[in-house]
Structure formats: structure tokens, C-alpha cells
Design a protein around this nucleic acid. Structure first.
Lengths: 197, 197
DNA sequence: GGCATGCCTTGATCCGCATCAACGCATGGG
DNA sequence: CCCATGCGTTGATGCGGATCAAGGCATGCC
């Protein structure tokens, strides 16, 4: 086990790399994405403190992880970690719990990508991100957005223009307020409504 | 542990149900879907013999599973199963392997839903389904499609019309051949090409 | 300062797929 | 048989979001 830090825009691991390590994040945000050879990109999620990376048992990473901010994390040599953990059923159970919870999250995101309209997608993203950050920064209505507009677009299956226009409209309508490096949520109820359950 | 059978169009479990059981499929096909209150539906996957259902540790099912064909399966009382399995690290490890593999599948499907065009989506579906069935029915170029066109559409984030037109075009172009309850793949290389890697 | 670079915004236009509509065809029940 | 029902196909039209294009505004380097 070994502490480490990576700088913004640097890559922790890439899709196809041998998955010899496993990480837990202690500070910062990463984006997790799958890249197509022609440049199209799908961000499958963002990782924040408390999250695990590489807990899959596949021999290679299926996705790329890179830092949006400065990121601190603990790195474990995987073979050793698995060895250790297999002696502790509770730990193993916990790992499985985390993995299967991530599966549920992924399935919900499929609904967003497959069946929701642009505005619903952005509302879904903003509300989910906000709720997720509560564990870290409490219930503040100010939501930091360390990812750029293009990242949000690549997470939601939209273009940067559509994301930008949607947020701009909400600012005009006083649903959100533009603040440095994020937004402040003024009318969460309205956002829930736009989400359309 | 207990064998059981369910009839086509019948529901095994619904989203929100208490997840007291866990299943392994021995024959037949199910669709797994997430429903929005307004009727929109996302099919997150199809389950075939060998697959597990309900191995998540969430107390409730996040999705609905219903039978497309007659389905046979083994049902386990979950608490008992988990109790048993925690004494067997190898089993637990296997469960985790299955869950994390499903997560990888789900992430790949996000790319399809978020970043691929209609024709690529259908090609992706057809090829993946075909490869998956090889484990069951060998390498035959005849692909049974127990799911209807609407199900394919709801899996791919398209409409039934787009799926129907795409398959019809491929039939005209002799890429596939219409056979009862499925299609025969005549030109797999062309499909791979249409997938665009 | 001047200029380049990266990121975001805003407007105009376009197009891929959804929507709307009609029809075909099988199955089953009276 | 007739008719209803469910599912798939096919064509015509429309629209939501992509694409194309231009400009704004930081930041940083020379």
C-alpha cells in the first residue's frame, strides 16, 4: 500500500492497461471513460473520494481514468490485496456490495442515455452529482463542477453546445446561478420536475 | 434451493420488489428492464442460461425481469445463499467476478447508447447476441431472436421503426437472411464494418 | 502589451431518427 | 367464416439536437 498524487489532466490508467493495481481515492475528482478509435468518447462516470477504482477482476482495465483536479489516492498491488481480502469474508462481501451497487448505477445511467431527452439528462446529472457530493461537502446548494462542459456532454451522450445552452437557459430562468467553478442550485424542486421523475 | 419454471410474458420480479431470492437460469431468455413512470422503458440486458439474477446485495431489485420464452431456473433463498457462500472465499470471489464483469458489459453498452448511430447500435446488438449464444448453441450463423423488435429498440434506445428498417435494409443487401424467429448472418464481416470497430 | 490557446457561449442551418399514419399478415377465438 | 389483437413493415413528415460558424473571455507566455 502506497500513497500517491497525480496532477490535473494526467492519466491514472488507460483502457487496455494491465490491471495490476487497485486504488481508493482520498481527494480530487477523476473521469472514467471509454474511447472509440474515431475519437468519440463516453464518460461512464466520475470518481470522487471514497470510491474504488479497478476492483473488477478482469486482467485489463476496460476504461481510462484521468484526473480532473489534483488527486490523492492509495494504491494497492492487486494480487496482494486480493490475497489479503480472501481471508476476510466481510471485506470480500463489501467489495461485492460496492461492485453490484455500481452496476445498479450503471443501469440507471443507461435509462438516461437511452430514453431521456436532453434537458432531462442535464437535470439528472446535476441532481445526482449534487446529492453525491453531500457525503463530502454537506448540504450546500453550491455545486462545484470540476469537469468541463465537454465532459458533461460526453457523460450524457450530448454535444457541448446542448449542455451549454441548457445551463444558460436555467441561469436565465433563475433555476441555477453561475458561480466560479460550478453552479448554485436555486430551485431544486424545478430541476426535479424537469427530470420528469 | 428449488427448481421452477415460468411461462412467456410472465414476470419473475419487478423493480422495487424485495430481493429475497436469487436465481440461476437453466433454459430460456428473459429481458431485464427499467421502466419510467411515463411508459418509457430501457432494457438493460437479456438473460440466458448460465446467467445469475439478483446477485446484487441491494435489498430491492432495481430492475424488472420477465420471460420472453418459457424459462427454467433455480431459485435460492438469498439470506441462506449468502450465508453459505461467505464460508467459501472462492465462491464469493466468483460472485464478485460475475458482478464486475457485468459492470464492464454495462459500461460498454453506455458507449452504444451515448455515442453510436442507429445502424451501429443494431450491428452491435446483433453481433454481441450472436457471440453470446455461441456458448449455448455453438457457432451456427442462425441467430434466434426471442425478443421482439420493440424489445431490441428498447435495448438500443431507438424506435421499433428504426430497428425494423435497419434489419429490412440488411436483408435487401444480403447481409442477413430472414428466418423464422430470428435471422441468419450471411456477411458477418460487413456487420463488423458497420459497427465501425 | 500582443498573441496564442483553451473553454464556453450563442446563433443559423441541417439531418438522423422520431413521430404519425396506414397497411400486411399471422394467430386465435367466437 | 369473420373479426379482433398483436406485431412488424413501409412511407411521409417533423423536430430535437447535431453540426457549422463566429465570437467572447480568461489565462499564460513572449
Amino acid at each position: 500500500m502506497h500513497h500517491m498524487t497525480i496532477a490535473p489532466k494526467h492519466t491514472l490508467f488507460s483502457q487496455g492497461d494491465e490491471a495490476i493495481s487497485l486504488y481508493t481515492i482520498t481527494s480530487g475528482t477523476l473521469r472514467l471513460h471509454y474511447d472509440l478509435p474515431d475519437g468519440r468518447r463516453q464518460i461512464v462516470g466520475f470518481a470522487i473520494p471514497g470510491d474504488f477504482l479497478g476492483l473488477s477482476l478482469d486482467p485489463r482495465f476496460g476504461i481510462t481514468a484521468d484526473a480532473l483536479t489534483e488527486v490523492s489516492l492509495c494504491r494497492f498491488e492487486r494480487a496482494r490485496f486480493m490475497n489479503l481480502i480472501e481471508r476476510h469474508p466481510n471485506m470480500m462481501r463489501k467489495m461485492h456490495e460496492v461492485a453490484s451497487h455500481e452496476l445498479a448505477i450503471a443501469q440507471e445511467h443507461m435509462v438516461v442515455l437511452g430514453r431521456r431527452r436532453a434537458e432531462e439528462r442535464v437535470a439528472s446529472f446535476l441532481l445526482k452529482w449534487w446529492h453525491r457530493l453531500k457525503r463530502i461537502q454537506g448540504a450546500s446548494p453550491t455545486v462545484p463542477l470540476p469537469m468541463g462542459r465537454q465532459d458533461i456532454a460526453d457523460h450524457l451522450g450530448l454535444t457541448i453546445e446542448t449542455v451549454s445552452r441548457t445551463l444558460a437557459r436555467w441561469m436565465r430562468e433563475r433555476i441555477i446561478l453561475d458561480v466560479p467553478d460550478g453552479v448554485r442550485i436555486l430551485d431544486a424542486a424545478r430541476l426535479e420536475e424537469l427530470l420528469g421523475n
